[in-house]
């Protein structure tokens, strides 16, 4: 019995050291948190990073990406010291710093990427995609999108939060179900009273008005966005990312069965960490 126990313990130890052991070179790298893309495995994404290094002749090998399903767990990892930095967007970084001055925008990375934010719709829902594209173009041309971005993203108050906007209602009009995650403030978040608020509701309210359609918001976990769309539990997914780069494929956040609309917002990828003297 003792021999079996000792053998089991040795096997468990082997498993633990085997699985958890990092390469020596990895242990010196800065761990940077990234959100998992819907259509790119973590291995693929690491390859893209290697490609970036080769193409631009820069060294970003000092960072090791650690992937998270949602922003929340990535932030928790940053706070607990599991990772040292997170990769996010300028608007999110500004929101973070406004909420907690311990965070700081890191300026030591040499590459700057820009991502476009689009709506995700079902592949076969071309009518909805075309209508959304038309409305997005209208809103871009008449400056509405810029105005909303300024009001709900750029000029965000540090002490308060943008209120939820009432979504328009049209009797007997078609209802579009939009999946929001509440996971990417100030673009997509849920206010204290439990209502989706901020930029997302402002943009969707305007779209509803212009399309003369009702908008119903459903709160869904980030990881279930694609499933919600393809199973028709939602008609539109609030945000999907298209990298403005030749190296990272445009469909890295577009799973099979999903089509993306024209972008309604663009933002620069930045790194955020804790201030040097306030590392937790």
């Amino acid at each position: 019995m003792k021999k079996i126990f000792a053998l089991l313990m040795a096997f468990a130890l082997l498993l633990i050291t085997g699985c958890g052991g990092e390469k020596v070179s990895d242990s010196n790298k800065v761990k940077i948190g990234m959100i998992t893309r819907l259509n790119a495995s973590e291995e693929n994404f690491e390859k893209f990073v290697e490609q970036v290094e080769e193409t631009f002749k820069v060294s970003i090998a000092s960072h090791k990406p650690v992937f998270f399903d949602n922003f929340n767990s990535m932030l928790a990892a940053l706070q607990s010291g599991q990772i040292q930095e997170i990769s996010t967007y300028t608007c999110v970084a500004r929101y973070m710093i406004a909420k907690d001055p311990h965070y700081v925008l890191l300026k030591d990375h040499s590459l700057e990427f820009i991502d476009s934010f689009c709506f995700g719709v079902r592949e076969d829902d071309t009518e909805l995609k075309d209508s959304l594209n038309m409305v997005i173009k209208e809103m871009q041309d008449d400056g509405t999108l810029g105005k909303l971005a300024k009001e709900y993203i750029t000029d965000i108050k540090t002490d308060g939060e943008p209120t939820a906007i009432e979504l328009p209602h049209f009797d007997s009009a078609q209802t579009i179900k939009v999946a929001v995650t509440g996971d990417l403030p100030p673009l997509d978040y849920v206010s204290a009273d439990g209502k989706p608020a901020g930029f997302n509701t402002a943009v969707l309210a305007e779209i509803g008005k212009r399309m003369l359609k009702n908008i119903e918001l459903v709160n869904v976990d980030s990881g279930a966005r694609a499933a919600a769309l393809t199973s028709k539990q939602a008609d539109v997914v609030f945000w999907a990312i298209v990298p403005v780069s030749e190296i990272i494929p445009a469909d890295s956040d577009k799973p099979a069965g999903m089509e993306l609309t024209a972008p309604y917002y663009k933002d620069k990828v930045v790194h955020v960490g804790f201030k040097a003297d306030e590392k937790k």
């Binding site: 949602n70 929340n72 403030p185």
Partner: peptide, 13 residues
Amino acid sequence: VINNIASRTMQPL
């Protein structure tokens, strides 16, 4: 709800 609050307040822990 807890996750939504954590994202909004940036205080997950």
